[in-house]
Amino acid sequence: MKVPLALIRASLMVALQYRGDFAFELLTGVVRTFGRVMPLVLVYGHTTSISGWTADEAMLVMGFFLVMTAFHEGLMEPNLGEVVEAVRQGTLDLWLLKPADAQLFVSIRRVDPAYLWDVFAAFAVLGLATWRVGVPGPLDVIVAFLLLGCGLSAMYGLWLLAICTSFWFIRVDNLRFLLLSIADAGRWPVSVFSGWARVLFVAVVPVALVTTFPAEAMRGAWGWELVAVAFTVAAAFLVVSRLAWTRALASYTSASS
């Protein structure tokens, strides 16, 4: 626990040093959020329900989607994204020498506080949507956040897997942009898509675990099989990505030395 805290403190100090940039990032964050929520407003301007989801319920999905993007852009991309470059240039050596687990270190080395806005916006949208849908029971909320945790873990595993490919291939780091563009579909309830696409969003790019599953829980429409699926997928991604990471490190030969 000491390692994460120290890393967060260092990130905050950097952010406070570049205050102008921080303010600018906040501003762009507002536009980003606006751009993400507007399509929802636009679509529901023409209908009251899509595949069984009302506007307010779809806003729950959007809220969880915003949590995911904040998690991705504020934590995963600044950290895991840099591993690719570090592998190519050989600077990964320096990180491997740190007295902490290498996977932990490359995953949370830097936290970008500018994305605090995105976290705030995500919970504002979630709060508003919850209030409009009807306040859920305590068990529903607990299950929702449990599912969210599973979803984020699974996405993290997927990201780590994508990063690991860069140890063997040079120019596949854009794989994560492809995954990101697929994950973008997660802003809509997964029942909008047809059968095979649904499997894709649950098991391959498990974005439905992050967005639709918790939203189902919040509107009280969850079952234990949903929880079981989420746990299985999350566990599979975490284990496989951990194995891939150790294999990748074992084959790392350091480019510079």
């Binding site: 492809l178 898509f193 047809s194």
Partner: peptide, 18 residues
């Protein structure tokens, strides 16, 4: 991979289709 990452129109198609 780059080319396939512009598949958003297909997502929007699924949505508007519904």
């Amino acid at each position: 991979i780059w080319i396939l990452s512009t598949t958003l129109p297909l997502v929007m198609l699924a949505l508007w289709n519904a």
